[in-house]
């Protein structure tokens, strides 16, 4: 049995401990906002918060995170995620949309750490999130916009 707190809910799961967190979230818990893109931590589409820090769920066996707290895009709350999602919609960042949950998670984690990031800090924090539609110009803009919103 694996014990996890997912989006604030405590649960015990009878799954193979090798199973990547990604597939537990999707196949067992039907939290489908977290996406599969590569399976080897190269694209960031599967990014979730693990004990508050961004983590690639596709390479995180659940057996290694027993008793951890996981937050997916469905369970995110707070001013940063709200500002990021509002900025994403206002700038029409998404094209196909597949990678954007992961982008939003990484951007939110960035703004929690650095409220007013520079372009270099954005590059550093977002470098692990691929976007095949290359919405990068707008991702950068939307992060700056969200930072301004948070500044008040």
């Amino acid at each position: 049995m694996i014990h996890l707190t997912v989006n604030g809910r405590e649960m015990s799961l009878d799954v193979d401990p090798d199973t990547p967190l990604l597939w537990v979230l999707r196949d067992e818990l039907r939290l489908t906002g977290t996406k599969f893109g590569c399976g080897v931590a190269q694209c960031g589409a599967c990014t979730v918060m693990l004990d508050g820090m961004p983590r690639r769920s596709c390479v995180t066996p659940v057996g290694m995170i027993d008793n951890a707290s996981v937050t997916t895009i469905e369970g995110m709350e707070g001013p940063e995620i709200s500002a990021v999602q509002a900025a994403w919609a206002a700038s029409d960042v998404p094209q196909c949309g597949w990678c954007q949950s992961g982008q939003v998670m990484s951007a939110t984690a960035l703004l929690r750490q650095i409220p007013k990031p520079t372009d270099e800090e954005i590059d550093h924090a977002m470098g692990g999130n691929l976007c095949r539609c290359a919405t990068y110009v707008r991702i950068r803009q939307a992060i700056h916009d969200a930072a301004r919103t948070l500044e008040g």
Partner: peptide, 19 residues
């Protein structure tokens, strides 16, 4: 006019095949 699908693609609710 803004895209009609931006919000659902920013909060994880847009439904794709794998979902």
């Amino acid at each position: 006019g803004k895209r009609l699908d931006s919000a659902a693609k920013s909060d994880g609710t847009a439904e794709f095949t794998l979902d």
